[in-house]
Design a protein around this nucleic acid. Structure first.
Lengths: 335, 335
DNA sequence: TCCGCATGCGACGGCTTGTGACGCATTCAT
DNA sequence: ATGAATGCGTCACAAGCCGTCGCATGCGGA
């Protein structure tokens, strides 16, 4: 074990140094090493920290007599094994996409990864990175709606509360209300719906849970108090049981039958509704699509978006529903 | 410089070892070190590789007399500074989301990052990771359409060709055709549209470019031939000019005015159509929304999806267009 | 204000261990 | 068959790591 201790120990030390908003004292870092089985004197840690800091790029802050160590906030990352170009490419695509999905504060946490990805791409192409973003676009569906902001602090506290099963106190501004109210809640789950972070939490062990849209939280702090156990909280079942998330209507998938135009057919051949989707031509120049899908309100929204390009044949109930919705819309424009 | 050479050198060595499908001989690794300014004898590299391999987890393959080193394919990653729990949480969310967006082969490249994220979460919560995925869901819009597969090999070659500006030869199966044809093309850009990878490429310097949906490529290889320069290929302008991607119709944003229901208003207050969006109540119990947005076919699709919940007031042209579409759909269900 | 305590750091001796050099065995290509 | 390349055992030397001691400094409690 002591054979190649040095490398591993210095390695572990480097990993233990946090990124800037955080700091760690020399003593603290030594404790972490002890905790991981490295028996070192404080002196050695001091020496390691001092010498390694010159070759790698981290720094320290002096406060009184103690030094606090940290990586610069915008420091990229040294990953082993190094990121490969294909992976870097994928990261770039992911970044472009996640921009439309995650709040800025969450994206910022991934920034170091995106940064190294750009670095790798810049290097491998030989040319400088500046030309790369000109070559990639990610296009989504629908207009590019803005993503509401979640505060850094709230995000960090959320994570602690959720993982550590701790009670947390949040200042939450209910929709429409100007002033925030204070809640002490036990976080149970996190649901991200269309770019909005919903914290699902209970007051103590009291069901049912409440939903907190995190961009409406103005402040949050963690309390030193464990969340009471909740026997068998099943997130999936809960999501199904609540209409708030617009999720499945009914538990069983339905057998959908559509009549679609050539354009929609082409699209569905690329991105199938389900794995058992079947497509066949019909006499009227359109196509019949059959697939088993969950019946959600999102499905209705998706179907409606195509207007006359999609006609719902079965189930009859869904057909009637869509027909009624379209009739309602038609009435609006009749004048 | 030679002060703490050891740590940095071993570090660089570790980074130089590629992940499994790739391998690197001892000689090769030594060359890379030399290239980065470390003057070491082959013997030292051998020793380092041997001793470090036991403490870190990589292995080697013997082929004849030479050893080839590599990290196991499913090896997580050792990143410095270590991933923090909040970041890990965000990675988990990103993974859930990207599942619906990126082809499996691309996602697999990010797998090591997701894996370490899970590791961090499992550790920090004290409890084992197994309970974590029960606590997070990402819900998107629309039915969960399947994402077409892109082959690993194709992805890797694409990256080389695009970044290295090399000509590549692909076996491409046109839509509807059973047999693949061979194309020698110069890759120009990559567009990901709704989960589908489109390679935009030209035959030589000949405009206009063609689009290749990468999941229809059965094989690809890189040729040792540079792509001819294309003076000023502007991807944005190109996307605008081509209808294939359904992107902006017209260059200027339009002043959209809608009449929406309470439900839509709530949604738009969370996720605004634009930064200058304004909402006001009207006499009829609905709400007026005004915003400047790009006029795209995606916008039409989005508007239609809400049926009678959204009425387009202005621009008049768009109102007429939507009205006509709805009338068409209405006719389908009239029988 | 004074004393105890914690932290950083310079210095020193012992000794682990990294390092280059040499030589031999093995494999592959010409 | 021969030479080049590679891996690896060995050895002597020296670099540098390590624990220890001692001193200086800053903070907090009595």
């Amino acid at each position: 074990m002591s054979a190649n201790d040095l490398a591993l120990r210095q390695w572990t030390l480097l990993r233990s140094i946090p990124r800037y908003p955080q700091r760690a004292s020399t003593r603290e870092l030594r404790d972490r090493l002890l905790q991981q089985g490295f028996e070192v004197t404080p002196r050695s840690v001091q020496r390691d920290l001092a010498t390694l800091s010159t070759t790698f790029g981290y720094t320290s802050e002096e406060e009184g007599r103690t030094l606090f160590w940290f990586w610069p906030k915008d420091f990229g990352l040294l990953d082993v094994p190094g990121m490969e170009p294909v992976t870097a490419l994928t990261f770039t695509l992911a970044e472009a996409h996640l921009n439309q999905i995650l709040p800025a504060s969450a994206l910022q946490l991934l920034a170091p990864y995106f940064k190294t990805a750009r670095g790798v791409l810049g290097q491998s192409s030989g040319s400088r990175y500046s030309r790369w973003p000109e070559r990639v676009r990610v296009l989504g569906r629908g207009p590019g709606l803005t993503v509401p902001q979640v505060q850094h602090k709230v995000l960090a506290v959320l994570e602690q509360g959720l993982l550590g099963e701790r009670v947390l106190r949040i200042h939450y501004c209910r929709r429409g209300e100007a002033k925030a109210s204070v809640h002490e809640i036990s976080p149970r789950a996190l649901v991200v719906k269309d770019g909005i972070y919903y914290l699902i939490a209970t007051y103590g062990a009291q069901m049912p849970p409440y939903h907190f849209a995190l961009h409406r939280a103005t402040a949050a702090e963690i309390l030193d108090q464990s969340s009471p156990k909740l026997p068998e909280f099943d997130l999936d079942r809960y999501i199904r049981s609540v209409r708030a998330f617009d999720w499945p209507i009914g538990r069983q998938p339905i057998s959908l039958m559509l009549s679609v135009t050539e354009g929609v057919r082409v699209h569905l051949e690329e991105r199938a509704l389900s794995s058992d989707q079947r497509i066949s031509a019909t006499d009227d120049g359109r196509y019949r699509v059959e697939a088993s899908v969950m019946s959600t309100s999102e499905l209705r929204w998706w179907l409606l978006g195509y207007g006359p390009e999609i006609e719902v044949i079965r189930p009859i109930a869904l057909r009637r529903e869509i027909a009624a919705t379209i009739a309602g819309a038609h009435a609006l424009y009749r004048c």
